[in-house]
Write a protein that binds this DNA or RNA. Structure first.
Lengths: 150, 150
DNA sequence: CTTGTTGCAAATTCTTTGCATGACA
DNA sequence: TGTCATGCAAAGAATTTGCAACAAG
């Protein structure tokens, strides 16, 4: 379900960015980088425990929060209100289409939205306008063609 | 801060829509309708209590949730993860630009986004695609022209 | 060494639920 | 009168925080 891909980037830089370089933070950041889509803090914590690299739950939370604050991760909320994080390789933020069934996330071309948001921002007179855009649905794999609406 | 506007619509229809017509539900729906922007369940509950129309917290939650489920209200999450509700007069959902300072919310023309979301939905192969779009910033009143960045 | 981090568990916050009482239809 | 709704308080979930032991620089 989750293909491990080479961490082309050393998380060191990111870790250093958010403070002191510790074993745990490195572990968390690496795990986040290794993750395809979005992950919840709890899920990540569990995964680490299962992988034999137990890191305190608080540390996972603190690291992810710091990472998001530093702009190295995107944060969204799932339907249940849980925070989901995703490592952000570049500096530009992206928007995703997330499958509500399996969690698969696929980046989408958000150009038009960016332009739109920008326009609104300019016309509204508001300052510091930020936007959140989340698309969710059922991916082809999860949505059986037999019309079984679960 | 919150201008009361005439409830042009009787909440009766909305109440009936979500089940039995009770005093409490009417109260909650009316209060929601009377609210300019988004409100949290707790805030609404407090307001009702202050107004002398105490309604159980659970009832407020249940009513708002049902209303949102019935499509009579929009639901967003604030930064802290709290659910905020807003009465939806029409049937088309709207998107808002919310001031992070004073909470003022202004509906924006989301036509382009709808089109975009629709396109993505069709091209992605995902089913049942829904979107969340939130714009936030500092409104002219709250953002001093003197460039004081907080 | 000094200070930032960790980890545990307790504390917070928002939201849901169980259940007996009470109100609608 | 039979349900469904209400309200309270307890239960749940996700996240934060206090604090002593510990590791990084």
């Amino acid at each position: 379900m989750e293909r491990n891909r080479q961490p082309a980037t050393t998380p060191l830089a990111d870790v250093t960015l958010i403070g002191r370089h510790t074993q745990q933070r490195t572990t968390v950041v690496e795990a986040l980088i290794r993750t395809e889509g979005f992950v919840g803090a709890q899920a990540l914590h569990n995964r680490l425990a299962a992988d034999g690299s137990p890191v305190g739950k608080s540390t996972v939370y603190r690291t992810l929060t710091a990472l998001a604050a530093a702009g190295r991760a995107d944060m969204v909320r799932d339907t249940g209100g849980e925070r989901l994080f995703r490592y952000r390789p570049g500096r530009e933020h992206r928007h995703y289409l997330i499958c509500t069934e399996c969690g698969l996330s696929r980046p989408v071309d958000s150009g038009p939205v960016e332009v739109w948001a920008d326009t609104i921002a300019r016309m509204s007179g508001f300052a510091n306008v930020r936007h959140t855009v989340e698309l969710s649905g059922v991916c082809p794999d999860c949505g059986p063609p037999h019309g079984a609406t679960r």
